[in-house]
């Protein structure tokens, strides 16, 4: 078993500004751990976590995949970027953080070069305005505010995946039942030939959470 990363260096003041790991985060860690063997088999060179928040997920991935992999993170919240860096250090994982939106800073240079993309997005259905305000200000509201169907931010990322993912690459996404999982999977299949599969699901309070993993059709037939 891989231990949950040490976050003891982060304080309540940090978690007023940065998303504190919760059920969604832990479900994602569980999925990554269950999938570890198959993930290692593709011999990843570059991992990118979008919206890294506290840095908990990337530090965990660093323990799963080891030090010969490049770990990149983005977050629109500058406090999250700082926490991600500190959490990497605390857990001896060498993490590179960029204060930026989704994958945009890397789109030019890393086309078809990223082996693992992970996103635990702001998935909560909210007013559209709440989501757009949070995206502009980069504050903690950006951790959950997802617009009418909770898909406002995720939908933008879904359009970026195909151009970045390597041929054997994997994309792990956290989603809520209300986000319409079958529709997400169908869209990715029809538009990009990326095949999605639900790895884990769990009810946590009012939320019914899912972890979906997407792969290219070609990489699946090789297995």
């Amino acid at each position: 078993m891989i231990p949950t990363p040490d976050l003891s260096h982060l304080t309540n003041t940090d978690f007023e500004k940065v998303y504190e790991p919760a059920e969604d985060t832990f479900l994602l860690l569980d999925a990554l751990e269950e999938d570890a063997k198959s993930l290692k088999s593709i011999n990843p060179g570059i991992c990118l976590e979008v919206g890294s928040g506290s840095g908990c997920v990337t530090s965990f991935l660093g323990k799963v995949l080891g030090p010969s992999v490049l770990y990149l993170c983005t977050d629109i919240n500058p406090h999250a970027c700082r926490c991600t860096l500190l959490t990497g250090r605390q857990n001896q994982v060498d993490v590179n953080v960029v204060n930026g939106s989704l994958t945009t800073p890397f789109q030019n240079r890393l086309a078809h070069k990223i082996d693992v993309i992970v996103f635990n997005p702001p998935y909560v259905p909210t007013l559209e305005k709440e989501a757009s305000d949070a995206q502009h200000s980069g504050n903690i509201g950006g951790a959950w505010a997802g617009g009418t169907d909770g898909m406002r931010i995720t939908n933008v990322l879904l359009r970026q995946i195909d151009s970045l993912l390597s041929s054997a690459g994997r994309f792990y996404l956290v989603a809520l039942k209300q986000n319409n999982i079958p529709e997400i999977i169908e869209t990715m299949q029809d538009q990009y030939n990326l095949t999605g599969e639900v790895l884990l699901q769990r009810r946590a309070g009012r939320e019914h959470l899912f972890i979906i993993c997407f792969k290219r059709q070609s990489s699946i037939s090789l297995q």
């Binding site: 970027c81 700082r82 953080v97 960029v98 204060n99 930026g100 939106s101 800073p105």
Partner: peptide
């Protein structure tokens, strides 16, 4: 700043 690059763009 503080070692973190700000790659955010305005709308």
């Amino acid at each position: 700043s503080n070692g973190i690059p700000n790659m955010l763009l305005a709308e």
